[in-house]
Simulated assay, not measured.
Amino acid sequence: MPFFTKISLVQFRNYMSQSFNFNKKIVGICGANGSGKTNLLDAIYYLCFTKSYFSKPDAKNAMHGLQGFRIDGIVDDSNKEQYLTCILRETGKKEFYVDDDVVKKFSSHIGRFPCVFIAPDDSTLITGGSEERRKFLDTILSQLFPDYLQELIDYNKLLLQRNSCLKNLHEQQSNNFDLLDVLDEQLANAGQKIFSCRKEFLETLIPIALQQYEAIADKDENVVMNYQSQLLDKSLLQLLKDNRQRDLYLQRTTAGIHKDDLTLLMDNEPFKQLASQGQRKSLLFALKLAEYFSIKNVKKHSPVLLLDDVFEKLDEDRMLNLLNKVCNDTDAQIFITDTHKQRLDMAFSELKQDWQMIEL
Rank of each mutant, 00 (worst) to 15 (best):
T85N: 13
Y227F: 14
K56A: 13
V116K: 08
V27Y: 05
K56E: 14
R280A: 08
N163P: 06
T263I: 09
K37C: 13
L287T: 11
K60Q: 15
F12E: 03
R13I: 13
D345E: 11
D138V: 03
L9N: 12
I206W: 05
G34F: 02
S294N: 02
C165G: 03
K37T: 10
R246K: 15
L283M: 09
F293G: 02
K325F: 10
G129V: 06
K94Q: 14
Y292T: 12
N328L: 15
L265D: 12
D72G: 00
K313H: 06
I295M: 10
D260C: 12
K37Y: 09
Q245H: 08
E350D: 15
N222F: 01
V75E: 00
C86T: 07
E291A: 14
L187F: 08
H64G: 12
F113W: 08
C165D: 05
N175D: 15
L231Y: 03
D122A: 01
N33F: 11
S276N: 07
Q186N: 15
L240H: 08
K93F: 10
Q356D: 09
D138Y: 06
Q11L: 04
R198G: 01
S294E: 14
I208H: 13
S235Q: 10
K296M: 11
H301W: 02
I26F: 12
G28H: 02
E291T: 08
K56H: 13
C48E: 11
T85W: 02
L179N: 10
N21R: 10
I118V: 15
L40T: 09
L314N: 06
L159R: 05
L180H: 09
K299W: 08
F145R: 15
P207R: 07
L262Q: 09
E312T: 14
E200G: 02
I71V: 10
K288W: 03
Q211T: 04
K135P: 12
N21D: 12
L66N: 05
T139P: 05
R343I: 11
Y46H: 12
G34D: 13
V304G: 00
D100T: 14
D220A: 03
V224C: 04
A286F: 10
E151W: 07
N175K: 13
F271G: 01
Q150L: 12
T337W: 05
D261V: 04
D99K: 05
Q277P: 03
D331Y: 01
W355T: 06
Q11T: 03
L179G: 04
S107H: 14
R280F: 04
G34M: 02
F22Y: 04
L144E: 11
G31Q: 00
L284W: 06
F3C: 00
H258D: 13
F145T: 09
F145A: 08
T263N: 01
I140N: 04
L41Q: 00
K6V: 00
T50E: 05
Q353M: 13
S19A: 04
C197N: 06
V102K: 12
K94R: 14
C115L: 06
L144Q: 11
D338R: 10
E316R: 09
E312C: 15
D58P: 07
L232F: 12
Q333H: 01
K157L: 12
E312Y: 14
Q211M: 04
K60N: 13
C165K: 12
F348R: 09
Q67K: 15
M357W: 05
H301T: 10
Y15R: 06
